[in-house]
Design a protein around this nucleic acid. Sequence first.
DNA 1: CTTATGGAGGAAAACGATTTCCCTTATGCT
DNA 2: AGCATAAGGGAAATCGTTTTCCTCCATAAG
Lengths: 343, 343
Amino acid sequence: MNEHDPRKAAGARPVSISAVARRAGVSIATVSRVMNGVENKATSETAARVHAAVAALGYRPQSVGRALRQRESRIVGVLAANLGNPAMAAAAASIELALRDAGFVMALCDTHEEPAIQDEYLAEMEAQLARGIVLLVAVPSPGLDRLRAAGRPLVFVNRRDPGDEASPFVGIDDHAAGCAVARHWLAQDKRGPFGLLHASLSFSAGQRRAAGFVAGLVADGVAEAAILRATGTGKSHLAIGHEGMGALLAAPIVPRRILCLSDLIAYGAYRRLTEAGLSVPRDVALFGFDDNPLNAWIAPWLSAVRIPYDGFGPVVVKTLAALLDKGRVETAFLDHELVIRGG
Amino acid sequence: MNEHDPRKAAGARPVSISAVARRAGVSIATVSRVMNGVENKATSETAARVHAAVAALGYRPQSVGRALRQRESRIVGVLAANLGNPAMAAAAASIELALRDAGFVMALCDTHEEPAIQDEYLAEMEAQLARGIVLLVAVPSPGLDRLRAAGRPLVFVNRRDPGDEASPFVGIDDHAAGCAVARHWLAQDKRGPFGLLHASLSFSAGQRRAAGFVAGLVADGVAEAAILRATGTGKSHLAIGHEGMGALLAAPIVPRRILCLSDLIAYGAYRRLTEAGLSVPRDVALFGFDDNPLNAWIAPWLSAVRIPYDGFGPVVVKTLAALLDKGRVETAFLDHELVIRGG
DNA sequence: CTTATGGAGGAAAACGATTTCCCTTATGCT
DNA sequence: AGCATAAGGGAAATCGTTTTCCTCCATAAG
């Protein structure tokens, strides 16, 4: 109702706790205690006066003051490997929401899967006294080793800690998911060859997905030789899929069913197939991993293992909270789902 | 070469400036000055001792201390409307890179185009003493009005400040871009009707794009009545495109060329057309806006106005720097480009 | 020989919050 | 009455920096 903005009247400086204390006629200690809901430290009458002053001045505590004193800020760093991947963006959005609900503030970064950039951000998060760090697909790096050794709260999402598989982790059971794809295809037709397109297999997620897929096929009698693997160069999964698909096309018998260890790899493969005049999924069926939200709209030709990124947030925060409050290391597995499209 | 991590030996507390000072045998003031490169305040010999101590202890200044003293942190808040849109994710990535080069730290948030969430983040950025705030597609909100009135450094990207068109802005010339699409289509065939699918037109970007498109058509003799507009409900551009396309399909004559004011709207329209058994672009041609990086891989049926998000970063930072250093309000227009696909 | 001048560096005061000691007062119990 | 206890609240220390004074010393100019 009052159109006058108190913050402007207060001058260039933002309203500080001492201004509130002065206006309420109490000490800054009392204001602090009321703001933080400390019990038995203020009569309801005093608290009301403080709240009135806070409202009148539009006071909001500055995070830096608190962070300095407590040697800990409310920031939680989220280091994502590639925000250009809609699946990761979805995961980040979900995590952000959950963090905010829990009273944290997300600082989101894109590491481009570069150890140097990851280290840069890890150091920056330390400098900001971040409460914890969430690594949405981590790469090995010296800084990561340092923080792990120092016992800082780290939560790994989607890809396990490359330095210690026992670190807190949130993700799906990659082996089971790979296996499920194999079973799904075998239920249709047991004849190979099958294709497997992957990026670097030096990380846990890819390894497990591939291993599960192969294990699933082999368990049902498919020969190892009937599983053709290919990859590409560089960091872009799109380019890797494109290049890897080129390699598969050069095989004596081109696989008619190809598992791509990420949606982006599948996109690359799709383009390569289109360039070769082949139709997806009529000539070649592709199976992706992630099932990012756009697939339903523009990739009706792509089946995929759906990773429930939308639901990651609460689980990540719960895992982080367990680490912070009780020092307990938790690993949470979420359920995947096969989304079958096309045909 | 030394495997012993100095930070662990220092105990739980991170290395502080006083530890460095002690080790170097100087005062903390001198350490601070050396770290900040203050001239004429230390002999090269003293500076060398300080640097040696910094290296030995692995010291990195804590941002909170500095922020508290200077009443300003190195954080720049980037509030994006929707990170699920790959175009925005690309813009955010570019901005992040440029900010880092300039010595800032990005804190990225997703406002979901909700005024309440945007305000929440604006307030949080204030509490963090953010150096500036970049709004990657802003919505009107009380908090935004407050910050603008307080003269805080705000840079608007892609969509102008809904409260003041004169605020610093980085984006393309939307009117010219809309006009360019019209001319492109008229050069092929002047017969209508034409379609226009849009989300809310209460914001500058959409308004200008639509106005430019219509102006371009009308200027070449197309009747206003031959331009069919449609939209949908809700916030999701995907759903809006889907629903709006449904409306256009109900028209007496279905437009064979439809401009969608964002790629996501085009995706929604694509799905609706596919559901109706129509082929894109054979039966209906779609033109999008943004041309997000995935289009080249999986949307070969979509022509689009390419907005050079990859190049936004340096321009945004330059605009922000002009605002911070010289208090100068700049508006930067980047060149768009028509990307023609399919057919 | 005095007196500016400027380089080198230390002591201490901020910055805005939280938190630890205190001190006062009121209440309940013997 | 005497005393323990607890509630209510203030003064001041503290967190890690930056920055303002200030001092000391060497050199150059007069």
